[in-house]
Amino acid sequence: MGILIKAEDTTDYSYGCPPDQRPIEQHIDLGVINLDKPPGPTSHEVTSWVKKLLGVEKAGHGGTLELN
């Protein structure tokens, strides 16, 4: 895959934050987990555990196997 350049510019490090340097709260808020779902509980239940565990209000899951 190639990169096409249209214009050059620099970025100001006084705002924003490279993904690997985020403070931990932000890292969690903007984070994804590739979770090995245990076979018993539903994806919905596991999502709710993860939410509680991490103390985040929102969490979602990117797929479920149940109906396949």
């Binding site: 903007l30 994804v32 969490a59 899951h61």
Partner: peptide, 8 residues
């Protein structure tokens, strides 16, 4: 989690 959920 959080805002990242919207991507999934």
């Amino acid at each position: 989690m959080g805002r990242a959920r919207n991507v999934l």
